[in-house]
Design a protein around this nucleic acid. Structure first.
Length: 884
RNA sequence: GGGUUUGUAGCUCAGUUGGUUAGAGCGCACGCUUCACACGCGUGAGGUCAGAGGUUCGAAUCCUCUCAAGCCCACCA
């Protein structure tokens, strides 16, 4: 017996179906010919992370695409992978080790990295399992990791190539330093937030006079490192001061007053203290005026010895208090005002970012951005939604150099070595010759210094920004820089799907590096999904405690329900408000589909079933469902074409629940057309498979109860519309049938007719009479009628409830049940509503401009409506007369 | 400061190139053990389409402005 459970039980089904797919190597891409391939790289998940809703939406959308393209007959390569996620992973492992009382420094670099690898191996299995749980039909045989051998080789190659092209350089600059992570960050890894702070006004006196300038600052502690005060060259207030020397309070250092147009005379006092070591603008002004740079804040966020004996070693916030107090004591603090300003935070740990001067590695972005822009402007990359193209190009237009070195241990160590040969005879004569400081950039570790032959070379300790390796992802995953078969077959990628929050972090870098290294756009389409938010539209975060665990949702409602809840009612690039109710709603839908199928299989019986590709319709309902189905197929395919997955899913659901279950199945229950049922159900399963892979695959098995090795639904062909079946006339006729049934049900409800009671009905159907007659048994069943008379027209029916719907006259002779008062009230309400409608139409038609200028078909439609409504009103009025 | 998105029923959202009495789901109300499904079925209530102008015979839809919320970018000390 082909048993199907009454309710869909996702947990059992899912593990069984997942095994089936795995055994069939569903996700495996053939990769023999370049033609007819579809390539998509999974955004590499943080290897130590656990599945969250961001992954869930990514995997859902990508799997929908992959399954759809596969069913369209493409050789689909959806390549999964994980990211070593430099800072994030190092932070996590460090924290765990500290809990055991082990510090990173005690362990040493080599041992620490070993520990991280252990960690990686353990958690890699977890995230991979979770990806599988989502139903992801990706190609595990080609899985990649940003730090595996092939990817590392690609990274080294890319670095060395860029260095050779002079697109990578080393320089001492003011960079973003995270005092907690103890590393520099790139500009986009700094999140700016408006914060309430103070503006401190400090008075600086001109040397040996009692004249003074007042400067305004939000960070008074940096005054210890001031090396000038700047004013706008045209500022009348300060003309006399330019060129003079001021005495820096506390420190008592002499600093000049310089004139610089970058100073805004309207801000504060119009005079700015200049701290080149700790502020980006100050650094620039310092450079133009050749000012010295004094570092008063160290890498741990503590004051350095240059800050003076009194402050050395103090953490920043303490130093601020101390400096302010000191200034106040000596009478140099003018006032303090409240002031909101933007403060940079580390995107990984939220610590306040310190601008520090430091020697780092950078990518020169201008030439790379230009190539990327050219590609986009030529239209070689399509953005979905299109508005992101603008954002993308604007960012590239204003690009800054990318700081790529990180002071971490976990990552791709720079392929850079330094010759540190110490002069054997450190006398003045030999120093130059023997103290070789040669830098070597090489894909393979150099054995000796090419300049001086020294054997003890020291490798640069820094590693690369995680996003450097991710930037190579579309081709490094395919074996690049080797010209592999996969690279030749699957590059460029078809679609890049990810969240819009990493447009600059990731997408832009891939486009630039792809253009640079492969000479083409790495993908044809960029699809960006929105962020998943909570019911109130807030970001989900641990601190708010509003996060929903996708795995818990899977446990409770099944993966299919979770997937649907993430796509239905969502549009590309728009944030999605997520809630558990959405998942329950979708669980209900999956169950509905399950039960509709259960019914169909029950009708079909246990015999071997052929699924007919184009079975013959028997009556109006058959023709109608075929018309609706093929219209749906057409629309679903169109929605897919424009990446409107939510729209496609919603249309399918609407069809299944309303057209198929509520009407078709109900109306054909007495005379089911087995072949047609099998066909429609099969098409529904195929259509919805990309969205609801598990339940549909399980149901598909039921078509082949005795087959040893039935074909997978996942490898079926996606339905194509048989347009000949789309028939507006049939749909209109069925609409009349539906209208009659609904009208009778409505009246029954209003008149409180018990559901079980069968009543009689008379319908005067006019031109609809011929086909309605044929449907009378169905109408009787669904409207619970004891008898139904359908005529073109006839005399008034006494003692009956009357309903005028869609040009029909419907009479329900309820005899004793009829209360004239209630019926009168009901008819009057209907009359009133209809009269309002009539007024609207009359007003329109009375407008000569409308009748003269609107297209003829619109005017005609309006006239037809008028007639229709007038007739209805007349009928209601007649009826009311009878009731007196 | 620049850019951008959103504002439609209590909530989440559909509304194609302007032409129906503006739709769906959830929630709500009433009624149903109808033999696929109570994770269900039927019926219903509920909206000045953020506001103000404008274009048009006709605007939720196009234009302008205003208001509100969100996001991105920017070196305002």
């Amino acid at each position: 017996m082909n048993e199907i459970t009454k309710a869909y039980l996702p947990n059992e089904v899912e593990s069984e179906i997942a095994q089936k797919w795995a055994a069939a190597e569903l996700g495996h891409a053939v990769g023999k010919v370049k033609k007819n391939v579809f390539t998509m790289m999974m955004p590499p998940a943080n290897v130590t992370g656990a599945l969250h809703l961001g992954h869930a939406i990514t995997l859902t959308i990508e799997d929908i695409l992959a399954r759809f393209e596969r069913m369209k007959g493409k050789d689909v390569l959806w390549l999964p992978g994980t990211d070593h996620a430099g800072i994030a992973t190092q932070n996590v492992v460090e924290k765990r080790l500290l809990e055991k009382g082990i510090s990173r420094d005690n362990l040493g670099r080599e041992k620490f990295v070993e520990k991280v690898w252990e960690w990686k191996d353990k958690y890699h299995a977890r995230i991979s399992d979770q990806i599988k749980k989502m139903g992801a039909s990706c190609d595990w045989s080609r899985e990649a990791f940003t730090l595996d051998d092939d990817r590392s080789a690609a990274v080294t190659h890319a670095f060395v190539e860029l260095y050779k092209k002079k697109l990578i350089y080393r320089d001492k600059k003011l960079v973003n330093w995270c005092p907690r992570c103890q590393t520099v960050l790139s500009d986009i890894e700094v999140e700016h937030r408006e914060e309430e702070g103070n503006l401190y006004f400090i008075r600086y006196f001109v040397s040996a006079t009692d004249r003074s300038i007042c400067v305004a600052t939000t960070r008074p502690e940096t005054m210890l490192g001031d090396t000038a005060v700047a004013v706008h060259p045209d500022d009348r207030r300060y003309q006399d001061f330019i060129g003079k020397t001021l005495i820096l309070p506390i420190v008592n250092r002499e600093i000049p007053v310089v004139a610089d147009a970058r100073v805004d005379p309207k801000f504060g006092t119009g005079a700015v203290k200049i701290t080149p070591a700790h502020d980006p603008l100050d650094a620039e002004i310092g450079r133009t005026h050749k000012l010295p740079s004094i570092v008063v804040i160290g890498p741990h966020g503590k004051m350095t010895k240059h800050a003076g004996r009194r402050f050395v070693g103090m953490p920043l916030h303490e130093a601020r208090k101390a400096v302010v107090k000191y200034l106040d004591d000596i009478g140099n603090l003018e006032k303090i005002e409240k002031h909101a300003h933007s403060v940079g935070h580390c995107s990984r740990c939220d610590a306040t970012i310190e601008p520090l001067e430091s020697m780092q590695w950078f990518v020169k972005m201008q030439p790379l951005a230009e190539k990327a822009l050219k590609i986009v402007k030529k239209g070689q990359i399509e953005f979905v939604p299109a508005r992101f193209e603008k954002e993308f190009t604007r960012w590239l237009d204003e690009i800054h150099d990318w700081c790529i070195s990180r002071q971490l241990w976990w990552g791709h160590q720079l392929p850079v070595w330094y010759c540190k040969k110490v002069p054997e005879f450190a006398d003045k004569k030999n120093k130059k010759k023997e103290g070789c400081q040669r830098m070597i950039v090489s894909e393979t570790p150099p054995k000796k210094c090419p300049t001086c032959g020294n054997l003890s070379l020291v490798r640069d300790a820094d590693v690369l920004d995680t996003w450097f390796s991710s930037g190579l992802w579309p081709f490094a995953t395919l074996g690049w820089p080797k010209n592999t078969k996969d690279f030749k077959t699957f590059y460029p990628n078809s679609v890049l799907e990810t969240g819009y929050d990493i447009l600059f972090f990731w997408v832009a870098r891939m486009v630039m590096l792809g253009a640079e290294f492969t000479g083409k756009a790495p993908f044809k389409t960029v699809y960006l999904h929105g962020l998943v938010r909570d019911e109130q539209g807030r970001k989900m975060s641990k601190s708010l405690g509003n996060g929903i665990d996708p795995l818990a949702m899977i446990e409770k409602y099944g993966t299919d329900a979770l997937r649907l809840s993430l796509v239905v009612g969502s549009t590309p690039g728009t944030d999605l408000k997520f809630s558990e109710t959405k998942v329950t709603g979708q669980r209900n839908f999956v169950n509905k589909l399950w039960n509709a199928s259960r019914y169909v299989f029950g009708v079909l019986g246990d015999k071997k079933i052929e699924i007919p590709s184009d079975p013959a319709p028997h009556g109006l309902p058959d023709r109608w469902i075929l018309s609706r189905l093929n219209r749906l197929i057409l629309e679903a395919n169109q929605s897919f074409e424009k990446y409107a997955f939510g729209e496609a899913a919603a249309k399918i659901q609407e069809f299944v629940w309303s057209d198929f279950c509520d009407w078709y199945l109900e109306i054909t229950k007495d005379t089911p057309n087995k072949k047609l049922l099998a066909h429609v159900l099969a098409q529904i399963l195929r259509l919805s498979h990309p969205f609801i892979p598990f339940a549909t695959e399980k149901l598909w098995e039921k078509f082949f109860p005795n087959a040893k090795k039935p074909k997978l639904l996942a490898t079926e062909k996606y339905p194509r519309s048989l347009k000949a079946h789309i028939n507006p006339k049939i749909e209109e006729e069925m609409q009349i049938v539906i209208a009659i049934i609904s009208a009778i049900r409505s009246v029954r409800n209003e008149m409180n007719v018990e559901p079980a009671r069968q009543i009689a009905a008379v319908v005067y159907a006019g031109k609809f009479e011929p086909f309605l007659k044929k449907q009378s048994s169905e109408i009787k069943k669904l409207a619970r009628l004891s008898s139904l008379v359908v005529k073109k027209s006839g005399k008034k029916v006494e003692n009956a409830v009357a309903k005028f719907e869609a040009g029909l006259e419907i009479y329900l002779p309820l005899a004793k049940l009829l209360d004239p008062k209630v019926e009168k009230k009901r008819l009057k309400a209907d009359l009133k509503e209809t009269e309002i409608y009539l007024a609207v139409i009359q007003k329109k038609l009375a407008n000569e401009d409308f009748t003269a200028r609107a297209p003829k078909n619109v005017v005609d439609a309006e006239r037809a409506k008028l007639q229709f409504v007038e007739e209805k009103i007349q009928k209601i009025e007649e009826r009311l007369k009878i009731l007196k």
